[in-house]
Computed example of a mutant assay.
Amino acid sequence: MKILLVGEYSRLHNSLKEGLLTLGHKVYLNGLNDGFKNYPIDFEIKRKWNSGLLRKLKILINKVSGFDISSYLTYLQVKNNLSKFSGFDIVQLINENSFLCQPKHEKKIINLLKNNNKKIFLLSCGDDYSSVKYYFENRNQSSILTPFLEEKVNKKEYSPVLKYLEKDYKNLHDFLFKKIEGVIASDLDYHFPLLNNPKYIGLVPNPINSDKIEFIKNSINNKIIIFLGININTYTKKGIDYFEKALEIIKVKYSQKIEIIITKNIPYADYINHYNNCHILLDQVYAKDQGYNALEAMAKGKVVFTGAGYDFMKHYNLKERVAIHAKDDVEYLVNELSFLIENPNEIIRIQKNARLFIEKEHNYIITASNYLKFWGN
């Protein structure tokens, strides 16, 4: 088959592409990239008028007329390069707003894709109408909405998430769901919001190409190294403030036993190199399941603080921990970190469990085969 994967912001589509290529299919990854992370893209759509004086002018035009020139220029790039987005058996969108356009221009792009390809599918692996609405209505569940619901941030600061509840984006959601064959969830955080949706096909775990990821045996002879990689854009959504507060306590409590590495907004390749030598990686606190960064770190044998609670353990029928379930509770995080620091053998045990889990449940070729089954049905 000839397959087009649209958009990338976590390396999910790159790993899926590698699995599909291994199975003998023609695969292209086109669309928007995710800024500083700089993942490989076969044909990249550039987000224009998005910095400097042009961005300020764009904002002014938008305030006066409601017209977003970046959206219009993105639409033109797809239209003028339509051959790069046409003639495919399968097209999969990374998100309901894959091109980051205003809904009216996003709809025009979706129509171009629908009219020039056989089947379109949607991936739910980030903020979208279904997940935001679900967690807004189920406030007792920890989610990316928790900081907003607890009034830690204002509406303006959380607008990139809350926009999906606006009328225009709800209309875009409805429009898109009429065009697609079905929607696939990448993990449990997006699985539960879609359970009653007739277009929901099912969950396919994130594909991880563990053939390319070496299991790193970092012996614990001297200091235990803890890594925190910060993306400013997701700082609040991931609960990084809880990790920072916990680390301040841990730094004082175990000053002679640990080393802490913190990075901010660095490219993907640099990010990986920075955490290669760590034993413990702090990922996020508001999740049921692991995102892509956490999974790759687990494949390398890191003990990752991420979503790994009851729902996760039950879904995968796990008896032993493969990661540490993180919570928005500083005392809890300090206790979990302290236990690992005082019991280094537990670090070694979880490192091995993590790698085996990735190889079993997130194998990129098996995952690619599952996508093919879902697309075929």
Rank of each mutant, 00 (worst) to 15 (best):
L5Y: 08
K84A: 00
I120R: 07
E248Q: 10
E336D: 06
P193C: 01
G307L: 03
K314H: 06
Q290N: 14
S338E: 10
I180N: 10
I348E: 14
N80M: 08
E320P: 06
K107T: 00
F227T: 12
K300S: 14
L32E: 05
C278M: 02
D270Y: 01
N276M: 06
K302G: 10
K217P: 00
N115Q: 12
Y332L: 03
I45M: 13
P205Q: 02
K108L: 14
E8N: 08
K300V: 02
L82S: 12
G66I: 03
L93W: 05
Y275I: 02
E166S: 15
F312M: 06
K48F: 04
Y254N: 04
I220T: 05
Y9I: 06
Q284T: 06
K179V: 08
Y135C: 05
A368N: 09
F99E: 06
K352Y: 04
I110V: 05
L123F: 05
F85R: 08
K119M: 04
L54A: 14
N370S: 11
N30C: 05
Y235F: 12
D168F: 00
T263D: 10
I258W: 06
V161H: 10
K245M: 10
L5P: 10
P103C: 14
I45Q: 13
K79T: 05
L176G: 01
I220H: 05
H279P: 11
A287D: 08
N140M: 01
K245R: 14
G376Q: 10
I120H: 02
K237I: 15
N140Q: 09
W49A: 15
I272Y: 09
I358L: 05
L54W: 07
D283G: 01
K84C: 02
Y28I: 04
T74V: 13
K163Y: 03
K237W: 11
V303M: 04
I208A: 06
D289Q: 02
L16V: 04
E106C: 03
L194M: 12
Y9L: 11
L29S: 09
A269Y: 07
D283Y: 10
E331S: 11
Q77V: 03
D168C: 04
L113K: 09
Y28M: 08
G301F: 03
F192W: 01
E320W: 00
L340S: 06
P207H: 01
L318H: 07
I258S: 08
K119N: 15
K302P: 04
P207M: 03
K156G: 07
Q290S: 11
V183G: 06
D241G: 04
V334P: 01
G239D: 08
L195N: 01
V27P: 13
F148C: 00
K152M: 10
S210Y: 15
G202A: 05
I341A: 06
L32H: 00
K104M: 07
M1I: 09
T234D: 01
N343R: 09
E342V: 05
A368H: 04
I90W: 13
N80E: 14
K152R: 15
I350G: 07
E244A: 03
Y254F: 15
K373N: 13
L4T: 02
Y242C: 01
I249N: 09
T236E: 15
T263G: 06
R11T: 11
L340T: 10
L21N: 14
K152Q: 13
P198Y: 10
L76G: 01
Y316H: 12
K56N: 13
A185R: 00
